[in-house]
Simulated assay, not measured.
Amino acid sequence: MRWFEIALVALTAVTGLVWLLDRLFFARRRAERAGLLEEKEPVLVDYSRAFFPVLAAVLVLRSFVAEPFRIPSSSMMPSLLIGDFILVNKFAYGLRLPITNTKILEIGEPQRGDVVVFRPPHQPDQDWIKRVVGLPGDTVAYRDNVVYLNGKPLSYRPLGRYVGKGRGADMTGAMLLEEGLPGRPHPVLERDDVPFFIQGEGEWTVPPGHYFVMGDNRDNSEDSRFWQAHFLPESNLRGKAFLIWMNFDRSTGGIGIDFSRIGSGIP
């Protein structure tokens, strides 16, 4: 989506500049040449005047208020499904400039359990989504499918077996659990039918200005456990996911829209 952001900024700047230059210099000259007759406005100026307010409004809303994203993978199942369209709060963690993502105003910081959109350190041109598990200064460990936070294991409440659908049907039969992350219990999936699966076990201490993030689909998520750097820099945050506004998955049959997910919050 970065190409769209660059194109939006460029089009907004070009149309705004054309409109401004015309108002400051060329419109008056046309009026003087025309006298009592109305001289037709150049096509470029006409289009710029029409599109600039729309482009500027979209840019402001998308950059500083809320931005739509689409979930392309199963790493956040069962909380988010393949085909979910979500809205991301762009000012939850501070106002940032488009393209560069430079923070210009401090507002808030991520909390444990927040579902965040970010640009991973090793894939800076992509937008990923995971859940914040470790804050700066925390020690996070993962052993035998259990998350340990500052030396204490999180609680897990069995919720039965998961039944997937659409492109997430391959997760049918996985264990559905509620993970007791302090302040934000949420569902997670674990596979117990793949005994030799590498689970990304280890222990990590989160440095200042960084976060430890994990996917809710624990055996199918490329997250902090597997990154070479392990931690997400605060500067790579894009916003906080807060709403599912649409789900579209053609593999489910019919029109492919799951109306039951429209308007759902994100646990």
Results as ranks from 00 to 15, higher is better:
1 M>A: 13
6 I>P: 02
9 V>E: 04
11 L>D: 09
12 T>C: 12
17 L>W: 15
19 W>Y: 13
23 R>C: 03
24 L>M: 14
29 R>A: 12
31 A>K: 13
36 L>H: 13
36 L>C: 09
37 L>G: 13
46 D>E: 15
46 D>P: 00
47 Y>P: 00
50 A>R: 15
53 P>D: 11
54 V>A: 14
63 S>K: 05
64 F>V: 08
64 F>R: 06
71 I>R: 01
72 P>K: 07
80 L>K: 02
80 L>M: 06
86 I>T: 10
91 F>S: 13
93 Y>E: 01
94 G>E: 12
105 L>H: 15
108 G>N: 04
109 E>Y: 13
119 R>T: 14
119 R>M: 15
129 I>M: 10
140 V>R: 04
141 A>C: 06
151 G>M: 09
152 K>Y: 09
156 Y>F: 13
156 Y>R: 12
157 R>E: 15
158 P>F: 08
158 P>K: 09
160 G>F: 12
161 R>A: 08
165 K>T: 09
166 G>D: 11
166 G>M: 10
166 G>H: 08
176 L>H: 07
177 L>F: 09
178 E>C: 02
181 L>M: 10
182 P>A: 02
189 L>Q: 03
190 E>I: 15
199 Q>L: 12
205 T>I: 02
211 Y>W: 11
212 F>Q: 00
213 V>Q: 01
217 N>Y: 11
222 E>M: 10
225 R>N: 02
226 F>Q: 06
232 L>A: 01
233 P>C: 07
233 P>R: 02
235 S>E: 15
241 A>Q: 01
244 I>V: 15
259 F>I: 14
259 F>Y: 14
